[in-house]
């Protein structure tokens, strides 16, 4: 099952489909899922929905809970129900978002409606060299606070950072390298590039914008394509205003226990 609503930019999919196959189908239509699970592209969508598998590109496209706009669910007791597709609602709790990430406790998706996006017209890698990790974090905060939403951000300290610079044949030394990938409409990406530099102007931050295919290849391979990227989440959690992977609260554990004993 794979159905594309081109007007609403929504794909209705069989959750058993692997992300990689789903993405390829969309790419053929000039679209993208905006989703790159940290567990790797081989992961089936059902697992991503059940576990709310983090999206490497969440800054731009949101997590899987933001991508999923509806679908069909079956509860552990076998009650099947549809959730209609809608952007936002104020009709009680958000059934989509409580089922997603419940690891089946509240139900599983038998069908998922997911937002899709036009493939970015332009993609640009940026490297910013900072004096220390706090300065780099401030750089990201400026970006996020100004609604510049890169697909991907990574702060690399010490060896990791200098290693990356070397692999790009750059001679600069930097304590911390901030690597980010901008994507979207051509004009907007260019504007974002200029805006990022302007935001950091006062601090004399040095920027590199690697454009040669070989350089881009190195960056894509080292930072994005490597699979899985499970270290991603803990490192960048605060950047989007999220608390770093905090453990489940007592309240959450108690509800899980209740739901296990009293399945829906």
């Amino acid at each position: 099952m794979f159905h594309l609503h081109k007007i609403s930019l929504i794909a209705v999919v069989d959750p058993e489909m692997r992300v990689i196959d789903y993405e390829q189908k969309l790419n053929a239509e000039g679209l993208t899922s905006g989703y790159r699970p940290v567990t790797g592209m081989q992961t089936p969508l059902s697992a991503c929905l059940a576990e709310r598998t983090a999206n490497l590109f969440f800054l731009k496209y949101g997590g899987i809970e933001e991508l999923c706009v509806g679908g069909a669910v079956v509860t552990p007791q076998g009650v099947a129900f549809p959730i209609k597709d809608y952007p936002r609602a104020a009709t009680g709790c958000d059934l989509r978002r409580v089922v997603i990430g419940s690891r089946g406790l509240l139900g599983q998706f038998r069908e998922g409606s997911l937002k899709v996006f036009p493939l970015p017209e332009a993609l640009v890698w940026g490297l910013a060299l900072f004096e220390g990790p706090e300065a780099a974090l401030e750089g990201v905060r400026r970006m996020v606070g100004s609604f510049i939403r890169p697909l991907f951000v990574r702060i690399m300290e010490e060896k990791e950072g200098s290693g990356l610079l070397r692999s790009l044949n750059l001679s600069e030394e930097a304590k911390v390298v901030l690597a980010f990938k901008l994507g979207g409409l051509k004009g907007m990406v260019e504007a974002e590039r200029e805006a990022v530099m302007k935001l950091n102007e006062a601090d004399n931050v040095l920027f590199h914008w690697p454009v040669r295919p070989a350089e881009v290849e190195v960056l894509d391979q080292t930072l994005i394509v490597r699979e899985p990227c499970l270290d991603f989440w803990t490192k960048y959690a605060p950047l989007a205003g999220r608390n770093p992977a905090s453990p489940a609260t007592d309240g959450e554990e108690a509800l899980k226990k209740y739901l296990r004993e009293n399945p829906c």
């Binding site: 709790c93 990430g101 406790l105 989440w233 489940a248 609260t249 007592d250 959450e252």
Partner: peptide, 20 residues
């Protein structure tokens, strides 16, 4: 009950149960 931020991460989303 305290809830936590589970967006783009693991866990049962209590925020979305109580909100609304």
């Amino acid at each position: 009950v305290q809830t936590r931020d589970v967006e783009n991460g693991d866990g049962l989303d209590l925020n979305q149960i109580f909100t609304g």
